[in-house]
Structures are given as C-alpha cells and as structure tokens.
Amino acid sequence: MNHLQLEKDIQHLENVITHISAEDRIPLSYWRNRINSVSGAALMPAQANRVKRLNAALAALEDRQKA
C-alpha cells in the first residue's frame, strides 16, 4: 500500500470510527477488517499510534455490542 493511500485510509477510519455504533447497518466486523488491513502495512511511528487508538476505539464498540 502506498504512503498516500495509507494516510487516506487512516484518516477515513479516524472519521468513521468516531461516528459509528454497534447498531449501524455496516457491521463492526467490516471496520475491524479495514483496521487490520491498515495495521498490516509498514507504518510510521505516528501512524502506528493512530492505528492503536483506532483499535482501542473499535474494541470498546465491540465490547459494548457483546454486552
């Protein structure tokens, strides 16, 4: 994945994750797969920290869905 596409993907995920809920029509598993695909790329340290925050935010949503 090229650097510009990776940055766009992270930005998109940052925007979306703050606005979704477990009840949205797009399942959380879709967003988990998107975050996992970004996580597998070669990340700069700042990007890796952003992806960690995305993982944590999505994990909190997943936990709420299970409860």
Rank of each mutant, 00 (worst) to 15 (best):
M1Q: 05
M1S: 07
N2L: 03
N2D: 15
N2C: 02
H3P: 04
H3A: 06
L4S: 13
L4I: 06
Q5K: 06
E7C: 00
E7I: 03
K8D: 11
K8T: 08
D9Y: 00
I10S: 04
Q11A: 11
H12S: 07
H12I: 02
L13A: 07
L13H: 01
L13E: 13
L13W: 00
E14C: 06
V16Y: 08
T18K: 13
T18R: 13
H19F: 07
H19Q: 15
H19E: 15
I20D: 12
S21Y: 06
S21F: 02
S21V: 01
A22H: 11
A22M: 10
E23D: 15
I26G: 01
P27V: 04
L28H: 10
L28V: 06
S29N: 08
S29E: 15
Y30K: 03
Y30V: 13
Y30C: 07
Y30P: 01
W31E: 11
R32M: 11
R32T: 07
R32Y: 01
N33G: 06
N33H: 10
N33R: 09
N33I: 01
N33K: 07
N33L: 08
R34T: 09
N36H: 03
S37N: 14
S37Q: 14
S37W: 09
S39D: 14
G40W: 05
A41K: 03
A41I: 00
M44D: 11
M44L: 11
P45M: 06
Q47K: 05
Q47A: 10
A48C: 02
A48R: 14
R50D: 14
R50L: 07
R50Y: 03
V51C: 05
V51A: 04
K52N: 12
R53E: 14
R53T: 11
L54D: 14
N55T: 08
L58F: 01
A59H: 08
A59S: 12
A59W: 02
A60F: 07
A60L: 13
A60K: 07
L61M: 11
L61P: 12
L61G: 09
D63E: 15
D63C: 01
D63A: 08
K66D: 04
K66F: 01
A67R: 09
